[in-house]
Amino acid sequence: MSRERTVEELDAVIEQTLRDSELVHEHPAPGKWLVDLPGTKKLKTVCGLIVGEHALRVEAFVCRQPDENREQLWTYLLQHNARTYGVAYSIDRVGDVYLTGRLPHAAVTPEELDRLLGAVLSYADDHFNTMLEIGFGTSIRREWEWREKRGESLRNLEAFAGFVEADRRARRAADPDGGA
């Protein structure tokens, strides 16, 4: 089977699956797709589907390199890799976090694409806030305090209220006199 025909056939399967799933997507070139996966914690995960010579490559950016606790975050992600389906957490050369995987051409069916995209969405969305707490906790706490002092909205930080409050309780427990 020629490569052109493989790309054409796989593009048809991918296009129909994305339409049936009503997912926003782009098709910038033969064998290349960008799919918007709507989440709740991570509002949108853009997933790339790239038809290669022997497999469909799946890539989705999850978060930028952590500011702190890199090893703790990477340990957390590696532990989750043992339970993932079709994709695994990975990092690029600068430390940004991705979900990546490969699906053999023969396995590219609407059902399998749906399952794989669902896995990407679940893994990017379900663990997103925990990844941010581990890798950006200091920044989150600083931003929360800055907004509180200025009377600014905390609306887009509400997901971290428990994280910030737990940190405050821990600081109070460590210093019951409040530094006096």
Rank of each mutant, 00 (worst) to 15 (best):
Y89M: 01
H25D: 02
E68S: 00
V62E: 07
G39D: 08
L10K: 08
G95F: 08
P176V: 05
E112V: 08
R142W: 04
F128C: 03
K42I: 03
W144C: 00
N156P: 03
I134T: 00
E15D: 09
R19H: 09
A88S: 14
A82Y: 14
D177T: 14
R172H: 11
V35S: 07
R169G: 01
A107R: 13
C47W: 12
G101H: 11
Y85E: 04
D126A: 10
P176R: 07
Y98L: 08
L103P: 04
W33S: 00
A166P: 02
V108T: 05
W74R: 05
V94W: 14
A119N: 07
E9T: 05
L103H: 04
E15Q: 09
F163T: 00
R93D: 13
L117V: 07
L103C: 13
D11I: 01
M1C: 05
V51Y: 13
P30Q: 06
G135N: 03
L37V: 07
T17R: 10
E53Y: 14
T100M: 14
L103I: 15
R172P: 05
D96M: 06
N156A: 01
D67S: 06
R83H: 15
D167G: 05
K42R: 15
E158S: 03
I134P: 00
G151P: 01
E26W: 10
L73V: 03
D67E: 15
R19G: 02
L103W: 09
M1N: 06
R83L: 09
S153D: 06
Q16M: 07
G48H: 14
E148R: 15
V164Q: 04
R102A: 07
R5K: 11
R64K: 13
M131Y: 02
I50A: 10
T84Q: 13
E26G: 01
H105Q: 08
E59P: 00
D67L: 11
D20P: 04
R147D: 02
A60H: 12
D11F: 10
T84V: 06
A88G: 13
E112I: 07
L157I: 01
L10W: 13
Q72H: 02
E148L: 13
T109E: 10
V108A: 06
V94C: 07
E158K: 13
